[in-house]
Design a protein around this nucleic acid. Sequence first.
DNA 1: CAAACCGGTGCAGAAAACGCACCGCTATGT
DNA 2: ACATAGCGGTGCGTTTTCTGCACCGGTTTG
Lengths: 300, 300
Amino acid sequence: MRHLKDYEFIEGVLRAGSIRKASEDMHITASALNRRINKFEEEFGYEIFERLPRGVRLNPAGELLLHHIRAQRSDFARLKSQVADLSGVRRGHVSIACSQALLPFFLPRQISRYRGDHPGVTFTVNARDRVEAERELSEFASDIALVFEPLTMVDFEVVFAMAQPIHCVMRRDHPLAGEQQIRLRDALSFPHVAPSEKFAVRVLLENAAHRLWSSKITPLIESESFDFMRHYAEWEDMVSFQFPIGLDMERHGDLIARPLDVRDVEPGNLLLGQLRGRTLPVASARFMRELMRSLRTHLN
Amino acid sequence: MRHLKDYEFIEGVLRAGSIRKASEDMHITASALNRRINKFEEEFGYEIFERLPRGVRLNPAGELLLHHIRAQRSDFARLKSQVADLSGVRRGHVSIACSQALLPFFLPRQISRYRGDHPGVTFTVNARDRVEAERELSEFASDIALVFEPLTMVDFEVVFAMAQPIHCVMRRDHPLAGEQQIRLRDALSFPHVAPSEKFAVRVLLENAAHRLWSSKITPLIESESFDFMRHYAEWEDMVSFQFPIGLDMERHGDLIARPLDVRDVEPGNLLLGQLRGRTLPVASARFMRELMRSLRTHLN
DNA sequence: CAAACCGGTGCAGAAAACGCACCGCTATGT
DNA sequence: ACATAGCGGTGCGTTTTCTGCACCGGTTTG
């Protein structure tokens, strides 16, 4: 699209950090690119780049413009897919930033079911922590985020929230396997593994330990991979902690999950959300609606 | 702005109804304009105009594009005023579509107070009925709407709602002037004036009459101007009906207002809203926040 | 059935964008 | 201390794009 060329150049310069570097990437002369940038700034009425000795950098006005550019590009993509819909073709793309816990079972099942009805729709799914997911939303790099509390950004619009009590995952022959609800003190009295502090599970556990005993928890194994922890718990007979939505017990014959007593540890909130005020592409909006339905039935 | 030229031409053609007429309006040759339109359609991938014997008309894809164009233009304006803010200048423009009732006292007071703090901000204020106001929002012709229930459009995002019991307005020496709350049957037993059916006041009165007595109300004078009705009530000693937010009794020595008993007539809801999902220009967002504060204190 | 409009096209000239060569400046590395 | 490499910016001739003019074929209108 001709009229978005300037925007592409601006983003190119931003990426490359200098006009000259960008000019190579974009197959154009540095002088021509320079003139386009200057001309744009002139028409726009404000400079958008700071000129530094070794290149350029966006100034605050440029940052605002950048957000507009991304919003504009995203809305244009939405428009095109909407128009494509008119011609009877059901296409589209959905990009999701989600917590690791959703990757093994929940999302694959959801997406494959959705694609059964809409085979033309493609997906991008990436594991992101809360902060990253929020940033991706605001940069229009992801349409939908599915992460755990707490959030830091005001632009994250929560569309659906769902409480998730932390579960202990352990072998069937573990001493605690008989309980229906596990007290935190019991769980911690056994060797256990726990995620690092950037994960909501760990934060909730630490909160509880601090509230109950003013202490910190001391996992024998710490990891950023829930997959690893779950498997490790199986090998060395440890207690692992996880949100139930990340579990699919039918497929784990030797492992079972039991909820921690909510008197000890408050449940985490799984949040489905998008960038505040954004009109999602049709496919993403549809898929989000499906997600809400699935999550709602998950409540039981 | 160079890159919005195509959009301006498209809107020009839409307005004029034909390429030739639009070409005159926009000081360009018909052939050149025709080629721009064709080229845009080619790049866009879809035709956006239906070619008719006497001109052109938007097709469904064009309608979608039109909405994108308007959203895009509005967001660009927001961006520019936001950038202007960076330079220390507090400028901006606020456009409001509101019910007639807000025009005499409420909005002038609000706006003048706001302009006291921000003299650079300009305003457009228009009286619109609900349907028109909703349409203006969706066409980005107005930023803010302040109207009474009920709404018909899903894209109207209610930001603040406030119950307004209908008041009877009459002369101080009217027989009902002594009451603190007026029963509907009493009010209707006197000569009265009422707005036409497109106004919420009338709808609520009719609903009440239908519910209570399965009848319709029979005003002696019917008008679309609340100003006229209020003044007429003064001249011929009649009962007039109005929402209290449209009244400023200190300035009407000879008139008083008394609420209708809420057992008879349900209150109307005054709704402050904007187009769903839209990011308002800074000035409009600010003014809306002020409006909310004022309305909230009005509750007492 | 002619006149009035309509969208579309061929062609030549105007305007905009571009590539090349080069300038002045500054951080960097020897 | 000084050459160098990398940066943004500029003058100029060339290429690409856009525009205006004249004109075509088709349809409605009076």
